[in-house]
Design a protein around this nucleic acid. Sequence first.
DNA 1: TAGAAACCTGACATTGACGTCAGAGGTAGC
DNA 2: GCTACCTCTGACGTCAATGTCAGGTTTCTA
Lengths: 123, 123
Amino acid sequence: MRIGELAGRTGVSVRALRYYEEQGLLTSERSESGQRRYAANAVDRVRLIQQLYGAGISSASILEMLPCVLTGVAAPDVLAKLHGHRSSVVQQIEELQETLLQLDSVIAGATEAYATGKPCPPR
Amino acid sequence: MRIGELAGRTGVSVRALRYYEEQGLLTSERSESGQRRYAANAVDRVRLIQQLYGAGISSASILEMLPCVLTGVAAPDVLAKLHGHRSSVVQQIEELQETLLQLDSVIAGATEAYATGKPCPPR
DNA sequence: TAGAAACCTGACATTGACGTCAGAGGTAGC
DNA sequence: GCTACCTCTGACGTCAATGTCAGGTTTCTA
């Protein structure tokens, strides 16, 4: 498929796809005229990249772990980094869960205040 | 306390604290010579700001919701935005949890491959 | 076989949350 | 009062993941 279709299927912009290639995260065949052609599994690849980006992992780190993700083989140092990223994701989740509690208490307080017309006691 | 102490207590840089003030997120008294003086509760305020930043909430949105967080009162539109941010945080958590599963499966596969010396079947 | 739509490369622009530096003034311990 | 450190404002730099634009080629559709 061509780049526009891949963009449409993944919801990622054409510019971003070219950027991924620039970073070595995504490869493509080229037609005779030089246009990019992608295999069907490129869709999954792009989604994986997006997911890792979403976890705050940099393109350099993604590049490092991609072969491992694709082949299942990892050098010990890469494996160590994978563990590092894992802990960072766990920590992010924990922090977000705490933030969620905060937001909930704010929302609850504000909703009640709005219903009763009385401001809640300041924290 | 002065800005350096606040920075030390919160782990946030002096530059960032001035930036928060610039954005209206943090206020300070000024000494006669113009130096910032913070009340003790500024520590909590800074931590709250950091937490909201960590949830990917922009300074503009934080500015909007701060009075509500502090006083417990919220106009209906602000309340709606709070709900919006809440859902976004929930979604982030879900996505990160999925990423965690992916990472775990990669780590498990790579660990086994390293132990047995055999690459896992490509996905 | 037009003409529109998609694609190419290359380069500069953007965004947000700061880092960093310069030059000047404030503060605290000895 | 010296000295070392802290603070001030203002301004430019940074970084990563794109957006956007220009100027040209390719591909699809009527």
